[in-house]
Nucleic acid binder design. Sequence first.
DNA 1: CCTGACTGATCGGTGCTACCGATGAATGCA
DNA 2: TGCATTCATCGGTAGCACCGATCAGTCAGG
Lengths: 315, 315
Amino acid sequence: MISKRAPSLSGLSLRDLEYAAAVGDLRHFGKAAERCGVSQSALSEQVRKLEGLLGLALFERSHRGVVPTPRGATLLDHARRVLEEARGLLELASAIAAPLTGPLYVGAIATLGPYYMPHLLRPVRAEFTGLALRVSEGQTADLIESLRLGSLDAVLLALPPPGDGLRAEALFFEPFRLVCPAEHRLARLNHPCVSDLAGDELILLEEGHCLREQALSLCEGAETAMRQATSVEMLWHMIAAGEGYSLLPLLAVQDRAPMGGIIAMSDLAEPNAGRTIGLVWRATDPREPEFRELCGFLRAHLPPGLNGGPGQGTP
Amino acid sequence: MISKRAPSLSGLSLRDLEYAAAVGDLRHFGKAAERCGVSQSALSEQVRKLEGLLGLALFERSHRGVVPTPRGATLLDHARRVLEEARGLLELASAIAAPLTGPLYVGAIATLGPYYMPHLLRPVRAEFTGLALRVSEGQTADLIESLRLGSLDAVLLALPPPGDGLRAEALFFEPFRLVCPAEHRLARLNHPCVSDLAGDELILLEEGHCLREQALSLCEGAETAMRQATSVEMLWHMIAAGEGYSLLPLLAVQDRAPMGGIIAMSDLAEPNAGRTIGLVWRATDPREPEFRELCGFLRAHLPPGLNGGPGQGTP
DNA sequence: CCTGACTGATCGGTGCTACCGATGAATGCA
DNA sequence: TGCATTCATCGGTAGCACCGATCAGTCAGG
């Protein structure tokens, strides 16, 4: 048996159904035309066309009024349901059309999310009521893949974003800080510069964390046989245990107690030793205006201690 | 508070929803256009127009495929419901569009219905499966009023129908028979003619029955102080009791046992002494073709003993 | 019985717009 | 770097919804 093909609703128009429903309500072509904002002749012709399409007469016309035929009444009931659904569609559209409403799936790299999200969630909630941020965490590559697949709408990471087909807008520059044991020689430098950092005491995050590459590119000459940490938290405690030092992004460390004085932190001499954090989305995502508005808001509500700094622009 | 006006679904078209749904299904503008039977450009423009109408982007376009935005997916779900309802409307229409289906409310005059209906119900049921005849009985004036009010769709009565705005088609000629006590003088006439009937022994139905007027117009000179009966059945028994004689339509008497020989029936000499039974409906009723088809069928399946006889035509 | 008012149907003319084919722009693949 | 694919865009066209005017039938009132 041939499967039932959905019949193309050839020629059926919501406008015609509206006309017919108006006639059914008012029982008068002229008044129905007035309600529908068209001339009586136009409405009359359309209703006639609709009757031809449906294959039966919807109304019994007389000169003292119009009355639906029994079958017509049945069809009018159904037509009103169609119209109701259509109106519901329009209402739904205008309800969800507002920018920055509804769920928004945002990912952030692991060296940023836990330290930045607490600062942004509350202001965003307050400003964009109706926006439901769903935040998740991961490494850059995984986040980008999720973004491409559509399971994420936007990603917070260090610019520039890897790969094509993406759009990004910078949010802020996050400087790196040197974190080392309080008794370490580096702790005595007033403003250590990156050339001071080479050495096998440098601890890095494991493969996959972009922070690892960022630190590596700063500290030339140190590439092999270094200690690794699986997370910022682990790294912090390794430093506290005196196993070495590292560069950590400002947000990840600035709110930390210095572990009873056994850890020292200092800014680097180079003002642009750090990374630029930005929001990234698919270039094809039609919500780009909304994302840019969100970026503007985020820049206006940076966590304390941050500013735009180096690395502006939208690659 | 101003009551919520039903928003005129300005510009919204089922075709556009179909286009969008096709894109949502196939994730490809070209294939969707093919399914919809239009060019890719036309579909693209219409979808774009729809997005403008709804105030948001339904799809995220890329060169490797199209994917609905989260909001777009929500709206597409709703749009599919609208389309489903619309398709249901068309299906419903084609299901009930078949002529002579569904309920049909038919009235018949009391001197005809009980004797004619038993003959027609079975053939009609057999021929027009799907047609549900709802028969009722009454006097001409009441039937016509019900017909005008719409609580009846058609009426079986003696032509011509009273009043304007009605259409009728003749079904058959029903001759009157003389019914009298077996020992009555009229019983001895071979072919009595109407002039033999004058006299105060004529029994008539009470006011309101058209049969009364029909008999009266035949039997001139007998107008006052006659016996009355409230129904054909009563009349029959009055005759059997020897209280007089009457003219009764063929169908009302031809199947009766002659009460053990105490009642005699005879045809009248005048071949056109009788009435023409026809089907009557509102001139404005768009089902006129169906009624005429029904009339044709009824004429082809007359009760035994009848033929078209005098009185054809459609007044 | 005639007349005016009212109803829905019908008829030419007109303008909007859905539609088409061709082309353009952007992307991914070989 | 060509080549294929995909959606967007553009100019031209035809269909059709629409309008104003008119027609045809009915009804109420004079």
